[in-house]
Computed example of a mutant assay.
Amino acid sequence: MEDEKEAAAIRRGVLRLARRLRTERPEGALSTNKTSVLAHLLHHGPTTPGDLAAAERQQPQSLTRVFADLEGAGLVSRTRSAADRRQVLLAITEEGRRAFTEDMAQRDVWLGSALGGLNHTERQVLILAAGLMDRLATTD
């Protein structure tokens, strides 16, 4: 029962912070799905649309429009796989890297300002928690 209460408290805090960070998106910012796709390609390199959808826990069909929009905007490119010419690989472009970085920058400004209201120990606790949350996010 105590584990469930702790889990609920962490979930509430994470969700509230995530909502707040979404509200700090700049005007005309990329959608959450587009940001997730760019982040995945940035951190994991070129991948097939199916593998990317699986990693994002979405159906490939639900991301088809996102992929097309990103490609149309020059943020991702599609190429044939050298290993299997039947497969298409998506890759982030330099323009995609720039767009992603700019999209994150405004939220980072807000978060940096908010962190300024915390003392050194509180900031260090959050840095530790961020690493732990990253680790939890990769567990199945």
Rank of each mutant, 00 (worst) to 15 (best):
N33W: 10
Q106A: 12
T48Q: 05
K5G: 08
A54V: 06
A73S: 11
T32C: 10
G13S: 14
L52M: 11
L17T: 13
Q124C: 13
E27F: 12
A82W: 06
G74M: 08
P60F: 05
L115F: 12
P60Q: 05
H120I: 12
D3A: 15
Q59D: 12
R86E: 05
R80P: 01
I92F: 02
T121S: 14
P46Q: 14
R123H: 07
L115G: 03
L115P: 02
A7M: 09
A83I: 09
A68T: 11
A8R: 10
L136P: 02
S31Y: 08
Q87I: 03
D140K: 15
D3T: 15
E56D: 10
V37P: 00
R80K: 09
Q59P: 00
A39H: 05
A29K: 03
A8M: 11
E24W: 11
R65K: 15
R11I: 10
H120P: 03
A91V: 03
A8S: 14
G74H: 06
I10V: 12
T23Y: 08
P49N: 04
R78W: 02
A29Q: 03
F67I: 03
S31L: 10
T47M: 14
L17Y: 06
V66C: 01
E27H: 12
D103C: 03
Q59S: 09
P60G: 04
A130Y: 12
A105S: 13
L136W: 12
P49D: 02
S77H: 05
L30Y: 03
F67V: 01
Q59C: 06
R16H: 11
I92K: 00
S36F: 03
A18V: 08
L52K: 03
T35M: 07
R22S: 13
L41N: 01
A29M: 07
A137Q: 14
L63W: 01
L41G: 00
D84M: 04
R22C: 05
T139C: 09
L30M: 13
A82H: 06
E102A: 09
T35I: 08
L132M: 14
I10P: 00
M104V: 04
T48V: 07
R86P: 00
L136I: 09
G117R: 13
R97K: 15
R12G: 07
L132E: 13
Q106K: 15
R98I: 12
S113V: 13
Q106R: 15
A73V: 03
V88I: 12
L89M: 06
E24H: 10
E95Y: 06
R85F: 06
R19Y: 14
E2P: 09
G74Y: 05
F67T: 01
G117F: 10
L89H: 01
W110Y: 10
E56S: 06
P46A: 15
